[in-house]
Write a protein that binds this DNA or RNA. Sequence first.
DNA 1: TATGAATGAGACTTCATTCAT
DNA 2: AATGAATGAAGTCTCATTCAT
Lengths: 199, 199, 199, 199
Amino acid sequence: MKKNILRSALLEFKQHGYRDASMRQIAHTAGITPGNIYRYFASKEAILHELIQPTYERFVGYVLEIRRDMDNTHTKEADSSMIYLHKIQGTIVKLFNQSSPELSILLNRSEGSKYENVKQELTTVIFSILEKAFHTFQNSGSARRQEEENQAARMIAATIVEGMCIILRDYEDGDTIERLVDELIRIYFAGIGDKINRS
Amino acid sequence: MKKNILRSALLEFKQHGYRDASMRQIAHTAGITPGNIYRYFASKEAILHELIQPTYERFVGYVLEIRRDMDNTHTKEADSSMIYLHKIQGTIVKLFNQSSPELSILLNRSEGSKYENVKQELTTVIFSILEKAFHTFQNSGSARRQEEENQAARMIAATIVEGMCIILRDYEDGDTIERLVDELIRIYFAGIGDKINRS
Amino acid sequence: MKKNILRSALLEFKQHGYRDASMRQIAHTAGITPGNIYRYFASKEAILHELIQPTYERFVGYVLEIRRDMDNTHTKEADSSMIYLHKIQGTIVKLFNQSSPELSILLNRSEGSKYENVKQELTTVIFSILEKAFHTFQNSGSARRQEEENQAARMIAATIVEGMCIILRDYEDGDTIERLVDELIRIYFAGIGDKINRS
Amino acid sequence: MKKNILRSALLEFKQHGYRDASMRQIAHTAGITPGNIYRYFASKEAILHELIQPTYERFVGYVLEIRRDMDNTHTKEADSSMIYLHKIQGTIVKLFNQSSPELSILLNRSEGSKYENVKQELTTVIFSILEKAFHTFQNSGSARRQEEENQAARMIAATIVEGMCIILRDYEDGDTIERLVDELIRIYFAGIGDKINRS
DNA sequence: TATGAATGAGACTTCATTCAT
DNA sequence: AATGAATGAAGTCTCATTCAT
């Protein structure tokens, strides 16, 4: 029964985002009265919390782990950065595999809630990784050139994150998600590798 | 004066999206009364229409043009697909360059309006292009393999579109947008080329 | 079991007043389900009725008795009024002593129910008594002076009643209540005596 | 127009108290729609604030003044306490005279708002005064006797405050209020004086 | 006898929109 | 051309009450 409400809420959050999700609509989808939801959840925020919190905590755990890894990696060689990025891929796929719809809401549709900055946090992490990889090769350019590289890295980080979010949005099957995230990251690596080689 | 309102509306739509944009706020930014807006526009939707419609029509025009181009291109050779994709890139950048703020709203912040499916339409077009390019090389696989390629193409199309949307969202300067879109598409091309070569 | 519910209701009414008392809370305190209350009572008002009605009826009885006494007392002498007031004090204290929590709710926390005017009724009675005592001495003033005396009597009546209500509100022990009501009325008598003597 | 709403709100607050006052009802009394109130006030609390805050600030000022006076008075003689109490009376009457309906709400009907403890504060002040007066005479009793005196002082303080609140509740004319408060305090002084003399 | 689910009215509040002036 | 007042529907949430089980 709570399950029933949570299922309706998941649909509604997915469709309109947290802020624009309507309790009326959630209740209607669940086949009950709006007031009745409050027998099971204290508030709209509480529904989101119950739906998202476990995923969020796992998310935070992984991000911390990645950060720790990064701080402990001091290699200056080209390949090691690449290898390191590949290791991270596995971590990310694992996270996505465990709870894709919730993660999708956490990242894409949490505006107006306490989770609304999560996607940006993930982007920042990816950006840090890319920054490291780029600097291994290109710290010799002009100031303007460096700023441009910075923008590029930021853009790439954001698009990688967004790409993963799209996969989450469009697919629910774990294997499919894994395969597509794999594909996405392989494309970016190949593309970035090409970019680095040419510069 | 309509210009004045449109300018305020653009800011508000950019910041909060169509659905959460406030007429009060638009009026306040324009230095007038909410009621007065209705002397110039019939509704919130009408403001969005006047703001976005030209860009939308140009957008549709480009999309049709690309579709026509594609239907007229029957080459089976590998390189021609690649070259063709490069031509498209130019078209897209041009569109972005002409009216980036409106395009950003059209693609990113039109939820709740009649334009809310535009991003998906663009994705479909990009998907068609990729489908063609992929099939030039890989129409020999099993049915399951072909479905997987389909999913991959769909994902790549969506992420390319999303990537361009992010660039629009984060930057306003035409040169910067052009450079970053360039970069993004180059990465995808290199990545996809690598993928095709390996398969 | 009804006793059980009544006990919980008493606590809740005392704490939040009739209007803001929560059936949920009453049920919770009684260790049962809200719905189950309705096997024993038709409504929230019905609970209040069963809790308060006996006290209310006794209250009305005393008031009638006092009224009758008053109508039968035609003495014109000063002291007799004073003595008469002292007799009333005993009656009141007795009433308070018998069922102070219910009386407290009846007088202090019945807003929103059919009992909400009871305090005013009591005030009216006290006022009648005072009026009589005052008139014994002061029926020689001007019309304006008489109206002022009237207002004073009304005010004193109301404050005496309110004073007794406060005592009920703040204390539960019978002896303490008796002592404080005693004190209160003694103060008023002394004060009023002083007032009369000076006029 | 704000005046209109404030007038309706004052009536509603007076009748049902802040917590149980209904915006619907306020709007209805003012002859407008509930939503329209929010053109003039941000919230129910904001209405109360605008209605009460000036009175509250004056109230706090007077209380501080009284406290300061009290701290500076170290006389041990009987009469000085009495004289001191008389001085306070003037201060209180002045306050009551300035804004009686607002003061009535502030003291009697602010439950559920930020002002809900104001009456208790005033009672505490009066209690401090009485404590001082009583101790001047009676610090020689047993512990139990002293506790009883404490309870009596507390009760008297509360009833004096409540008495003044009743006057505010029932009358609006400044002169009448002044006269009745005067009367009330004279009664208490005479009564208390009598009490002290007998002990 | 008792429960837990459910309802419906009403609470405060927001906001696009209308309209008399 | 413009305003400020006003509305009504919808938002989240609470709660006395009902009812099938």
